[in-house]
Design a protein around this nucleic acid. Structure first.
Lengths: 282, 282
DNA sequence: AGTCGTGGTCAATAATTTATTCTTGATTCA
DNA sequence: TGAATCAAGAATAAATTATTGACCACGACT
C-alpha cells in the first residue's frame, strides 16, 4: 500500500512534530530523494532521531526504507498522471462532479480500510452477534448513521435500540447487563455526555464499541472495541460527505460479516414481511 | 532515463566485474530494495567499493541514489501489470471484503451516474435553492436518507421539513404553495400513500422531485424532476447497501451543487454554531 | 496537590552504510 | 624493460542511520 496514503491515514493521531514530518512528505514527496534524515530534520527544525522514529512507527525498517517506498509511490503516481494527461486535457477538465467526488470517497475508504484490520471487524461483528441487547447512540450526522445501523441490526434479529438523546439513554442503559453492547457514534469523540454514558455502561459490565474519527480521543480510549474513520478535505462542505461515506462503508462491512446462516435467514424473512406490508397498499 | 535501460546500454563496454553487477541488477531489480552495497558485494563476491564505483560511473551520486532510481523504474514498470494481474487468480480471491464491497458500490455509482446527467442535477439543485420550503419524505431506509438530506439542506439555510409519516405529511402539505418543493424517496416508487401525496402536492402548485430506483414506476412518472438510482446484486443482503450508497452519492452531488456563495457562507456559519454548541460541554 | 506512568523529544553516541584513498597487479605500448 | 594506465580490493574516512538514556509535559489516579 502506498506510504502516502498510510501517512494521510495516520496523520490525525500524530503528535505535532510527527504531523510536521507527515505534511512535509505529503507536500514534497517528489523532493524526498534529495533529503537525508538529517537534512529533513534540519529543514523542519527537529531532531534527526524523530525522523527515524517516524519512519519506524509507520512500519518501515528505517528512514531509507520509507524514502524508497515513497519513491515508488511517486513514480507510480506520476506515471498515472502521464496516462491521464495523455487522455487530452479537455477530458480531465470535463470530469464530472460525480467522478471527482467519488474519487475523494474512494480515497477516504482506502485510508479507513488501512486503520481497521479485518480481524478487528470480525471481532466486532461477532461481539454484536453474541450481544443480548445492542444500544446505538449518536448526535447530529452521527445520529443518522447510528439510527440506520440500528435498523439494519434489527432486521438481522438482534434486539437493537437507537437513541438520539443521551439523557434518555442514561435511563435506559441503567438497566444494562453483562452481554449488552453499546455503540457510540461520535466523530470527534469529545462529547462529555456520551463519554460518561460509556463509562456508566461499562461499569454495568456492558461492552462499548466506539465509532470515531481516527484521532486520539477520550471516547475511543475507553472503549472495548473501536471503529476508526479517516476522511479529509480542505473544503468544509465536502469533508462531512467523505466522513459519512467512509463510516457507512465500515458499518456495511460489519453488517455483511454478521450475515451468516441463521441471521441471513432471519433477514430474508423480515424483508419478505416488509414487502407484504407494503404491497397490499397499492 | 530509466537506470535499467542505461545499464543495459553500457553493459557491453563494462569490465567483467561491472558486468556481474549489471546482470545482477537487471535480473533482480525488484529485490534491490533489500540490498546494501556491502550485501550486494558479498552476494557477488566482490568488494563493496566496486559497487559504489559502478554506481558513480553510471552518473548517480552514489549507491543509494542508483537504488532509489531503480526502485522508481520498477514501480513504473510493474504499475501497469498490477492493475491487470490483480484481477486474476488468487489475488482476487484474497481481496478483502472491504475492497470487493467497495468495488460493487463503485459499479452502482457508475451505473447511477450514467442515468442522471449533470444538467439534470444542476436543475434540481437550483430548484431546491429557489424553493420556499422543502419537504422530504420516505419510509424505511428511504426515510433515513430523506432525513439526512433534509438536515443537510437545513444547514444551507433552506427551510426544510422532514416527515416519516405520510399521514401527517398530508396535513402539512395541504398548506403547500407555489414555490414549495416535495422530495419523495421511494425505492420502488410503488407506495400508494406517497403517490397520492405527490399528486395532492402538485395540485397545490408545488414541485415534486422523485427519488426512486431506475424502473418505470408511478411515482417517477408524475414527478416534475426525477433522481434515479441503479444498483444490483443477486444477494439480498448486499443490494440495499449498494442502493443506499449510490443514492447517497447522488444526494451528495446535489448538495455540493447547492453550495455556492451565499449558501456556503450560511453553512459555515451553522457549522461554527454547532461547534460552539458542543465544545463548552466538555 | 502529589506522583506515577506514559509518550514524545532531543542530544549523545553507537552502529551501519557509503565513499574515498591508497596499494597492488595486470596490461599496454614505446 | 619500464612507464603509464586502469581495474580491483583493502583499509579507512566520512556520512548516514539507528539506538540509548535523560528530560519534560501531560493525564490518570490517589
Amino acid at each position: 500500500m502506498s506510504p502516502l496514503v498510510k501517512i494521510r491515514a495516520e496523520r490525525d493521531q500524530m503528535s505535532a512534530i510527527e504531523r510536521r514530518i507527515a505534511d512535509f512528505m505529503l507536500d514534497n514527496a517528489h523532493l524526498l530523494r534529495d533529503y537525508s534524515s538529517q537534512q529533513l530534520a534540519d529543514a523542519l527544525q527537529i531532531s534527526q532521531s524523530s525522523v527515524v522514529k517516524f519512519s519506524q512507527k509507520l512500519g518501515f525498517k528505517g528512514y531509507p526504507d520509507l524514502k524508497y517506498s515513497v519513491g515508488e509511490a511517486v513514480a507510480r503516481a506520476s506515471d498515472g498522471q502521464v496516462k491521464t494527461a495523455a487522455r487530452s486535457t479537455r477530458a480531465a477538465a470535463r470530469e464530472s462532479l460525480a467522478e471527482t467526488l467519488w474519487q475523494s470517497k474512494s480515497r477516504a475508504e482506502e485510508e479507513t480500510r488501512l486503520i481497521n484490520d479485518a480481524e478487528k471487524l470480525s471481532e466486532i461483528a461477532s461481539m454484536l452477534g453474541r450481544a443480548g441487547r445492542v444500544f446505538c447512540i449518536g448526535l447530529g450526522d452521527d445520529g443518522s448513521a447510528a439510527q440506520a445501523f440500528a435498523q439494519r441490526l434489527a432486521l438481522l434479529g438482534t434486539l437493537t435500540v437507537h437513541h438520539a438523546d443521551p439523557v434518555r439513554m442514561t435511563a435506559t442503559s441503567s438497566s444494562a447487563e453483562r452481554g449488552d453492547v453499546l455503540m457510540v457514534f461520535s466523530e470527534q469523540g469529545q462529547q462529555a455526555a456520551l463519554n460518561q454514558l460509556s463509562r456508566q455502561f461499562r461499569e454495568r459490565h456492558g461492552k462499548v464499541i466506539s465509532v470515531t474519527r481516527h484521532t486520539s480521543n477520550p471516547l475511543r480510549a475507553h472503549a472495548d472495541a473501536t471503529l476508526l474513520v479517516s476522511a479529509h478535505d480542505e473544503r468544509s462542505h465536502i469533508q462531512p460527505l467523505l466522513y459519512q461515506s467512509a463510516l457507512q462503508h465500515l458499518l456495511d462491512q460489519v453488517f455483511v460479516l454478521m450475515c451468516d446462516g441463521d441471521r441471513l435467514e432471519q433477514l430474508n424473512t423480515n424483508l419478505e414481511h416488509i414487502e407484504h406490508l407494503l404491497d397490499p397498499k397499492l
